[in-house]
């Protein structure tokens, strides 16, 4: 009996010590980890506004200041949960907004940049996805993202879509985007997600901006 109590006490003490150590490290680095996540998101938004690129490299520590100085959150009259940014004192109609949806495997999350005056897509970035590396995973390659550039979304096609993702190399109209061969599942998920995101943006925009 005595032996059992000793074993129990030993286990409790060891557990407490290691839990204490791990929580200590977590507490010490928590803010840094949080900052990393925020900076990673801000970088994506800034690059979609063209404020950051390979030749306009920026130190990690300068990102939050630039972000706060150059961009602002857009508030829409409609009270939907919709994260959307524009440049401060902007004269153009460039908006960057968040989207997410079910991909082939995992959720695909990212940001779209659109010109609301010309009704064209200006850029797309994926911040998180779980598509198959080498197949659907190619959505995060610059070559694929460039396929969205300047695509018009003002009109709805006969099939109800604003933009259609077609077989790779088959895009012949301005409202068609080349998909990825070998990743039909990812391609059609992207089609759904992008169309839903654009529809949401248009609805919000029509509701009016309140700031």
């Amino acid at each position: 009996m005595n032996d059992k109590i000793k074993t129990l006490l030993f286990t409790i003490v060891v557990t407490a010590v290691f839990t204490f150590l791990v929580s200590g490290i977590n507490a010490a680095l928590k803010e840094r980890i949080q900052l990393n996540r925020t900076v990673a998101r801000q970088k994506v938004i800034l690059s979609l506004f063209g404020l950051m690129s390979a030749d306009k490299a920026l130190a990690e520590s300068d990102v939050p200041a630039l972000f706060a100085g150059e961009t602002e959150l857009v508030k829409f009259a409609g009270k939907a949960d919709f994260e959307c940014y524009r440049r401060k004192n902007a004269t153009d109609e460039l908006f960057v907004f968040a989207f997410s949806g079910q991909g082939f495997w995992d959720n695909i999350i990212g940001f779209l940049a659109v010109d609301a005056e010309k009704m064209q897509i200006k850029g797309i970035e994926f911040t998180s996805h779980g598509e198959t590396p080498g197949l659907g995973g190619r959505i995060s390659e610059p070559e694929f993202k460039a396929r969205f550039k300047d695509k018009p979304f003002a009109e709805t096609r006969q099939d109800g879509l604003r933009l259609k993702v077609v077989a790779e190399g088959a895009a012949s109209r301005s409202d068609e985007i080349d998909g990825i061969t070998g990743a039909t599942g990812t391609s059609s998920s992207i089609e759904k997600i992008v169309n839903a995101a654009l529809a949401k943006f248009i609805t919000q925009k029509q509701g009016g901006i309140s700031n």
């Binding site: 150590l21 791990v22 490290i25 977590n26 680095l29 840094r32 980890i33 990393n36």
Partner: peptide, 9 residues
């Protein structure tokens, strides 16, 4: 967990 936290940071 220590490694994971340090990598995240």
């Amino acid at each position: 967990i220590f490694i994971k936290i340090v990598l995240d940071a």
